[in-house]
């Protein structure tokens, strides 16, 4: 696919609070990633490694799991404010990965914090594959 699907999704999302399914969202990230990595497929296992990996760029927020716990199905706790965070898994919270603009915003914010850079489309596709496992 050579249409810039993701920007279009995002535009649609921003304009109309357009909603997508986690699968559609994962597909658009996969499509974007496969333009750089031919034949790319999202992998829940790579996603799991990414989720637990200690990047340690920030000593307060070393990994995604610092706030989202070891499992996306569990209720998380904000490592700085102590506020609870609802699970990331759509089987627990149906609205997860359904609003492209919201997902992009949090990927941008949390990745910059934890990795010190934005996440790639491939990392996002893997992440969603892992977080939606079993749904």
């Amino acid at each position: 696919m050579n249409v810039p699907l993701l920007p279009m999704l995002l535009l649609a999302g921003a304009a109309t609070a357009w909603s997508a399914t986690p699968r559609e969202l994962a597909q658009s990230y996969t499509a974007e990633a496969s333009r750089l990595i031919p034949g790319f497929q999202g992998s829940a296992q790579r996603g799991a490694e990414f989720y637990a990996r200690r990047f340690a760029v920030s000593s307060h927020l070393p990994a995604c799991s610092a706030c989202h716990t070891d499992s996306p199905a569990r209720i998380g706790r904000h490592a700085v404010t102590g506020k609870t965070i609802q699970p990331l898994s759509p089987s627990a919270v149906a609205t997860r990965f359904s609003d492209p603009a919201k997902v992009e915003k949090w990927f941008r914010r949390n990745c910059t914090e934890v990795l010190g850079r934005e996440c790639s489309a491939a990392e996002k596709a893997d992440f969603i594959a892992f977080a939606t496992e079993g749904t």
């Binding site: 927020l61 904000h78 700085v80 404010t81 914010r109 949390n110 914090e113």
Partner: peptide, 11 residues
């Protein structure tokens, strides 16, 4: 405003 690391300071 944009940072979770500084969320408490922001608040």
């Amino acid at each position: 405003g944009e940072s979770e690391r500084w969320r408490l300071v922001h608040v």
